[in-house]
């Protein structure tokens, strides 16, 4: 796809393919995410995201929004209304703010997506009040945005590495923070699911090229 044309490349169909592939990846990884959450949370991260992304895939198949911004905004809304846990408003805000930042453009390039995703991640940080190193999804999302400035593969690698690097951290936000030092030694489920979604973004981009 048109990496040589920075203004174009990723259209509504691309974002629909990405989020539909996310739904499949979440189905595949749901048990793993829930296991991670059972160690330091309330053991519902996988099943919550499964419910949310199933609803996203169903809605996108029915509605077929016309622009990248509309796809992401609609998907964000679905997550907010169907997930039932904190990951709903957090990922919902991520997608909605990213979609809003993309505006009405019929297609966008990687640099524009990185810029918009950065705004989405900033909105997540503001909503949840977390910062880097608190052992949350932000630990994977912030490096992903930085990596996306270089390439899709860099974004995926940065997010995956950052998710693994949450293991020795002590949780400072969310349900896991109640565990204090006992949260150390477990990989954060939110950072893990964030890395999963960014990994699928890279796979979708590669498949389209």
């Amino acid at each position: 796809m048109a990496e040589q044309e920075p203004g174009t490349g990723l259209d509504a169909a691309f974002f629909t393919r990405w989020l539909t592939a996310c739904a499949a990846a979440v189905e595949r990884e749901a048990a793993h995410l829930t296991d991670l959450d059972a160690a330091i949370g309330d053991a519902d991260h996988g099943s919550n995201l499964q419910r949310g992304f199933r609803a996203v895939a169903d809605t996108l198949a029915k509605d077929e929004p016309a622009t990248p911004g509309a796809v992401l905004t609609l998907a964000g809304r679905q997550l907010i209304s169907t997930v039932g846990g904190a990951s709903g408003p957090l990922y919902g805000t991520l997608l909605r703010r990213t979609g809003k930042a993309l505006g009405d453009a019929p297609a966008v390039g990687r640099a524009a997506l990185a810029e918009a995703l950065g705004q989405g991640v900033a909105a997540v940080a503001q909503l949840g009040g977390a910062k880097a190193g608190d052992k949350t999804m932000l630990d994977a999302l912030e490096p992903a945005v930085a990596g996306l400035g270089q390439s899709y593969a860099d974004a995926a690698r940065a997010a995956a590495d950052a998710a693994e690097a949450t293991t020795p951290l002590q949780a400072r936000k969310g349900r896991a923070s109640y565990l204090g030092e006992r949260s150390i030694g477990h990989q954060d489920p939110g950072a893990t699911s964030a890395a999963l979604l960014i990994g699928v973004l890279a796979e979708t981009a590669e498949a389209g090229q």
Binding site: I80, G85, A86, G88, P89, L90, T93, R96, G128
Partner: peptide
């Protein structure tokens, strides 16, 4: 947790 975040998100919407 999610009760706080969901209401904040609905208000932001």
């Amino acid at each position: 947790g999610s009760a706080v975040l969901t209401v904040k998100t609905l208000l932001a919407d």
